[in-house]
Design a protein around this nucleic acid. Sequence first.
DNA 1: CGAGAATTTGAAAGTCGTCAAACGACGTGG
DNA 2: CCACGTCGTTTGACGACTTTCAAATTCTCG
Lengths: 229, 229
Amino acid sequence: MSGAVQSVIRQPMGMAGQVSTPTRVTDPLAALIGMTITLPRDRELYAQGERAEYCYQVISGCLRTVQLMEDGRRQVAAFLLPGDCLGFDDFDSHDFAAQAVTDVVVKRFRRHDVEAQADRQLALARRLRELGASALRAAHDRLLLLGRKTASERIATFLLEMAARQHQSHMVTLPMSRVDIADHLGMTVETVCRMITHLRREGTIAVVPSGVELHAPGALRQIAADLRH
Amino acid sequence: MSGAVQSVIRQPMGMAGQVSTPTRVTDPLAALIGMTITLPRDRELYAQGERAEYCYQVISGCLRTVQLMEDGRRQVAAFLLPGDCLGFDDFDSHDFAAQAVTDVVVKRFRRHDVEAQADRQLALARRLRELGASALRAAHDRLLLLGRKTASERIATFLLEMAARQHQSHMVTLPMSRVDIADHLGMTVETVCRMITHLRREGTIAVVPSGVELHAPGALRQIAADLRH
DNA sequence: CGAGAATTTGAAAGTCGTCAAACGACGTGG
DNA sequence: CCACGTCGTTTGACGACTTTCAAATTCTCG
């Protein structure tokens, strides 16, 4: 049995960005005709450089987007949770690979169709631009993290972000491995472990099988030294 | 230098497949009504968190987008050169500040107008999505750089990228300070200098008042260990 | 229960950052 | 036109945070 696999974050879709878009009664994306696809853990949804024919919205499970260097160094650009979209803003080919962190269900759309539909439906076109803006904002926050934050700040930031995305303030599910986290935060597995251990010994968090419990979110926030607000 | 209107942020070693967009006869952006604004060096075009009423296209000069942490740590997300656009994909407020690196001339558009126009003109709507996609791709490349590349690789990558964006292969103009470069590449001024000195002593580059000459772009490329070929 | 993988911990090494100071480019003022 | 002060760049020495290498421990799954 897949232990942690099914304890993946569940949450209604439609909250793609924690952005306060004025209450959208019907998400234009929901109107698109999409095929439901399931993907087993560790399977690749698409490869880096692959022709980008489809785009996707995550229904359940967790995906990661990955960039590789020839010598094996890896950068996980993002983890995608239910409601998140990917592939909508690529060009002809995908900039990075997308892989299933857990068993995953996604809704798949033909990009050509989406583009065509966007030309007819203003709401969708706007939604697509919003989607891009969300992704861009997230990427920019990560630039600051990777460029300027220390190891402990990165971990704290990451845990808080995951908590927020799961709409939880005490329990954070971490479906991805420590290696994935390391490659996401620009550090090594060992450093990730050490930082987590440190937080645990401080009593700030507790490590449980499928994630961590946040005992002192305030302390985390202080460590994260979060910008904006 | 105004001919660069279509040169949105380009990849280092601009391959990535033929960057879709076949030769665009008329850029939808050119049709927008924009006011020309000049900005002296070091002046701020807009502040972080400021209400995003306008968006811009660079006509001449160089801008930087900046994120600040309370303790002063700074991340330069991007340098913008003639033809580049900014502010098109923000939400209500700007995610970061934009400041003039040199004296700058920009064309300013009211975002509300752009959005409205996009609703009427498919080409513009598509162009806006492309713009977002370009920015996103650039940001992702930078994630890999910040997360996984060494100091020398970052410098090499940066020089090659600047050369490509200036459509030059031997002479690179660097209008920004070493501090700006450092804050862009996630390192310190001292390290930037050391890396440049190292390349100079190797004979790979030569430092001139306004930038550097690339004597051995091949060597740079090798150092950059560039992904995506 | 046992083998292999993932996580955690430890010790040593390195890269990069910090602190400090010299050097050089400019612009102002004498 | 040159002296001088300021700011940006460069260089050096030292220290620290992370990484690297190695191994113990825990967890997963057959």
